[in-house]
Design a binder for these strands. Sequence first.
DNA 1: AATGTTACTTACTTCTATGTAAGTAAGCGA
DNA 2: TCGCTTACTTACATAGAAGTAAGTAACATT
Lengths: 189, 189
Amino acid sequence: MDSALHTRDKIVELGRNYILTIGYHAFNYKQIATALNIKNAAIHHYYPLKEDLGLAVIEKDRQEFVNMIRLTANGDPLLGLEALLDCYDRYFKDGHKLCLVGTFCSAYHDVSEKLQIASAQYLNVICTWLTEVMQAGLESGRFNFEITAQEMANNWAAILPGSLQIGRVQGEEYFYQVMDSLRKSLKTK
Amino acid sequence: MDSALHTRDKIVELGRNYILTIGYHAFNYKQIATALNIKNAAIHHYYPLKEDLGLAVIEKDRQEFVNMIRLTANGDPLLGLEALLDCYDRYFKDGHKLCLVGTFCSAYHDVSEKLQIASAQYLNVICTWLTEVMQAGLESGRFNFEITAQEMANNWAAILPGSLQIGRVQGEEYFYQVMDSLRKSLKTK
DNA sequence: AATGTTACTTACTTCTATGTAAGTAAGCGA
DNA sequence: TCGCTTACTTACATAGAAGTAAGTAACATT
């Protein structure tokens, strides 16, 4: 039972890795089965449909994001954004991955409704949090940019996934310059 | 022969539409065949491999981009960028499409090397042009932003595809606000 | 000890995308 | 008119992904 949970979790973890690296439709159960040295059908035992695994991956990613913002809550708004940027750094470094919402938004018209809803809700959580953090930074005087918090949050929501996608092709110099530009754009004091 | 060229062009046009809407791997020859009321294998007559059609779509898109920038060359740098933003407006309005480099960068680890090279070269053309236009705008005093032309170009390269992807999920209010923010960020005089 | 549950495997079905081989009908060029 | 090319069609081959049905071995529960 303990190892059962282990396998179940490993499947989600591997699934997430494949989704972020090659995309939801490009990954398949055989790749996970091979990596875990079990059979294809064993994955179906835990996640009968690929959609089920997809939903579990989204849920896990969302949980991790929520944990991250909980850890940085009530602190310096800059710390929260730095933690987020660190995530993106890791995505890029570790195999030129994309972020989860980036992949699902790209493949949006090619996934089931349940997956659309789950990823849309997750995106909403991120966008709402971004706006709150930008607002908090502005109100506390920690940030000093000249557009609205909402506008800055919207820009970040587009540029973060975009930089991973363009960066995986243009190279790391490109990616890190965009990350740097994001940091500077806050005009922190 | 005239209608032959017609069919050949219609295939590329339809292929491009499907790629921008649902992605390279989600579209298939049957969809195009049905739309043109011909048989599956007829597409193979013009484009033996799907990769061939993919390359033709990239080439066509690139040609259109090159034509666009040629039309706006030596003019106001703002006009060139406005023309580009108009393209993105149309992508969004017309079925929540993505842009071509956005889709191929997203699916980068899931397409053949030829397609990777072709889309990477196209992306390079765009990034180079963006940098030149930003530089021209700065030097002429038409733009007045406070970062380097290169940095601004890199930001645009990420935010443009990103805004289509996030916008197709977050909705049009989101998308148009980001477009608006891009315009304002140039600080035109 | 009997029963049920968990974690799988084996073996199969189904479906669909991709691609090929071979043929046909129409037109064009010499 | 002969022969070549163009623009297809019909029919087939292949591969791989997704999913299911049935069984087994080990362990837990009562």
